[in-house]
Design a protein around this nucleic acid. Structure first.
Length: 512
RNA sequence: GGCCCCAUCGUCUAUCGGUUAGGACACCAGGUUUUCAUCCUGGUAAGAGGGGUUCGACUCCCCUUGGGGCUACCA
């Protein structure tokens, strides 16, 4: 490949980024990095009706947050190159020498291209109303024929077109499917050769009556203008590939390499992932406590794998760049399995240092959660939280799990049934003996030992001897009041001398 | 209806004509452990069906079946 690799992620600003968008962006980014090419963001906002305010800003932030900042595209104002944007996108400018990167900012280029096709007799104006089209489609589907435009407007005279336009009749521009083709052969990076029947193709609209282009025209004009070398997009586009090929041919432009990515399916294993499968937005997963690194890693493996017999599954972004190769991209769709995401997220959480984990937790706004709203300030301190994190790290699946499984660490008083203190069939006397012994041991320990969880563990195990359950179980319950909890040594370490001893004393009183 | 795509354990997948079909998640059992979790060991579990091609097919071809996508002045 001698030509420079230039790829683009081209979402429309119709909502927030979702799992499928993350993967499309990721594969494009990985390929660009791998080939030392350019990764471009382009906004396809040619549908005025579906425009969602804030979506462009959200998309830019999304790519930056996930470490996939594009080299070219719309950017926040701080490092702009030129600012040709209308007031529709305040605070955003074009970054790169192929501006505009937002389609609504360059309508003239699509209109000129459409006009050129009309002049060359490869496209034509159509004045048919939505009503007529609906009736036509109804008739055709009743006769079980494929809905197809009947070309009523195809041979309108120049004069008639002029008159109707002057009368104010709305017109679209339709591409005229050439009649000299029986089949259209396409070469796909992932699907290899795909052959389409030309006779099934409709004279599709390339320019809408509001002057905006449709996707079909717009993306081709821009991919050509931006010298895009490879297009990696969702497989939903595969059926319209022959239209695009015909457009490229009519325009006399070379076709980029095109690959169609497999679907990401919902948990039912059938339909493509959608809102029906719970929220699929990236924001939802971030709020649920999944790490971006884990999300990237997980989504990368949905439809791709390193191949060559590799069993590696944990990949950093840079490792993905190294391993990426679209010869290994799958054709079949992949089910989004939340359980495996949970596992992967837990793996990432375990790898972090306590300081890193703490930073993630704070960035996650952990302390603003409902659980922490009732926690006293002293137990929201950095020192205390880091102890909690150290104890919980191996048990965490998501950041949102922090604290909630061990509420007793945050409570000021414990409420539990005294019978819980007894180890197996032990009676009250034995339990009391164990707790008194523990209290004696702990109150006699040197202050420095209290900061050392491992040493505390050693001391407690020493004292327990071969009667671990008899000694440690009552102590654990005395400290936590819970059937399940971290170990007594960890509980003692987290709570500190004063609170630990108080809880043991309360437990002894419960037995009296 | 038409067109197009797809098909290995429940799920993600390895295999690119010759393997006891491998790994991971999930699940089950056992071990470590004072409980929970982590961790370790083991186990259950797959080439949709039918034809070809071939000395030999999960692998190549065809058909069937099943699933999905597209079929808008949405992308």
């Amino acid at each position: 490949m001698s030509e420079k690799v230039r790829v683009r992620f081209a979402p429309s600003p119709t909502g927030f980024q979702h799992i499928g968008g993350l993967r499309t962006a990721l594969y494009n980014y990985l390929f660009a990095q791998k080939e030392d090419g350019v990764f471009i963001l382009r906004i396809e906002d040619t549908d005025q009706k579906r425009f969602v305010a804030g979506a462009v800003e959200n998309t830019i932030a999304f790519l930056e947050n996930f470490g996939m900042a594009p080299q070219e595209g719309p950017k926040f104002q701080k490092d702009f190159v030129n600012d040709l944007l209308s007031e529709k996108y305040p605070g955003i400018v074009h970054h790169g020498s192929f501006a505009p990167y937002i389609q609504s900012e360059g309508l003239a280029s699509y209109q000129e291209t459409a006009l050129r096709l009309v002049q060359e007799n490869k496209a034509y104006y159509c004045f048919c109303t939505a009503e007529r089209l609906a009736i036509l489609h109804d008739e055709q589907s009743k006769e079980k024929r494929a809905p197809k435009y009947d070309r009523l407007c195809k041979n309108l005279s120049a004069l008639e077109i002029k008159e109707r336009k002057e009368k104010g009749e709305a017109a679209v521009v339709r591409f005229a499917i050439p009649g000299n083709r029986s089949a259209i052969k396409a070469r796909d990076l992932i699907h290899d050769e795909v052959i389409f029947q030309a006779e099934t193709l409709d004279d599709f609209i390339i320019l809408k009556s509001d002057g905006y282009p449709t996707y079909h025209l717009a993306h081709i004009v821009d991919d050509h203008r931006m010298e895009i070398s490879h297009v990696l997009r969702a497989v939903e586009w595969l059926p319209s590939l022959p239209k695009h090929i015909l457009l490229y041919e009519a325009l006399g432009w070379p076709l980029p390499f095109i690959g169609h990515l497999p679907t990401i399916l919902g948990s039912d294993g059938k339909k493509k992932l959608s809102k029906r499968d719970g929220d699929v937005s990236i924001e939802y997963f971030e709020k649920a406590g999944y790490l971006r690194e884990a999300l990237i890693n997980f989504v990368a493996l949905l439809g791709w794998n390193p191949g060559k017999g590799s069993t590696k599954e944990i990949f950093s972004l840079s490792e993905l760049v190294q391993a990426f190769d679209f010869a290994q991209i799958h054709k079949a769709g992949a089910v989004f399995d939340l359980k495996k995401l949970d596992w992967m997220n837990a793996q990432y959480l375990k790898k972090l240092s306590i300081d890193e984990l703490y930073e993630k937790a704070i960035a996650f706004d952990l302390l603003e959660s409902e659980f922490f709203s009732t926690v006293p300030a002293i137990k929201k301190s950095e020192a205390f939280l880091k102890k909690i994190l150290a104890v919980e790290q191996d048990r965490l699946v998501r950041l949102s799990d922090i604290g909630i499984h061990n509420p007793f660490f945050f409570a000021s008083t414990l409420s539990y049934d005294a019978s819980l203190l007894h180890w197996k069939d032990n009676d009250a006397t034995m339990t009391k003996t164990a707790l008194v012994q523990a209290e004696k041991l702990l109150s006699g320990l040197d202050e420095t030992i209290w900061d050392d969880a491992e040493l505390l563990e050693t001391k407690l195990l020493e004292a327990a001897g071969d009667k671990k359950g008899d000694f440690l179980s009552p102590l654990r319950v005395a400290l936590t009041g819970a059937e399940r909890s971290p170990s007594p040594a960890q509980a003692v370490w987290v709570l500190g001398k004063e609170e630990a001893l108080l809880r043991i004393k309360n437990a002894i009183e419960k037995l009296a």
